[in-house]
Design a protein around this nucleic acid. Structure first.
Lengths: 109, 109
DNA sequence: CGAACAGTACGACAGTGGTCGAACTTCCTG
DNA sequence: CAGGAAGTTCGACCACTGTCGTACTGTTCG
């Protein structure tokens, strides 16, 4: 199979699902990395985001993001290149992505 | 006893926690109701938001919101009057609340 | 005072979610 | 072609979460 990945249509994005997807630190880091670095592969993201999780866990997180409509993946050879679905997200939830991507004011605790 | 409720300091708000708190439909409805109606009591919110949950469940949701730093409660007689912590949220996560409160472009489900 | 009301606390229970290792598929490369 | 790299899928496990009913504290009012 080539492109079986499940990508919900732009109109189908649900706010609770999107928020839930973003509510995990690992996935938040993933989204931020993706926002900065543009298109990259699963492993690359895992490395860039500094995530110390197994392949399967990473795959799981990426699936949540994809199924929430936050990311998009295309296959290139043995890799899957991921991108943020910026336009779709901005269209449906204006300002949300920007708010979430904003650097946090430090000292969370 | 007057003020036993746990309210995290404004600087202590964690984005994942806030997002997780907002990721539940019941709590999202609660926040929206609160944003529109201003200060109101638990039961009033439950009614206004059209939530059909038990008292204890409602109390649970409100606790999550409070502990995430999204709401604030003050005691007035037998009631607890809740408000959104708009300023704190806007200060720490600019645009987030507005993005989440924005009416959804219909047909979310 | 006593009954009804507002809300919290606790315990139980089912469902979900994050984590891993192992097995598998597909692709690239020597 | 054989070996390895990139990801996904699967089953297991444990922690967390949403739900409820019940019991409790405190308040208002008849």
């Amino acid at each position: 199979m080539s492109e079986d990945a499940i990508h919900p249509p732009a109109e189908g994005l649900s706010l609770p699902k999107v928020l839930a997807a973003l509510a995990d630190p690992a996935r938040l880091a993933t989204v931020r990395t993706l926002a900065q670095g543009g298109e990259s592969s699963c492993n690359q993201i895992r490395h860039d985001a500094g995530l110390e999780v197994s392949k399967s866990t990473m795959s799981h997180h990426l699936r949540i993001l994809r199924e929430a409509g936050i990311t998009q993946s295309r296959v290139q050879g043995a890799r899957r290149l991921l991108t943020l679905r910026r336009e779709d997200l901005d269209a449906r939830f204006p300002g949300l992505l920007d708010a979430v991507l904003q650097p946090e004011p430090a000292a969370t605790y």
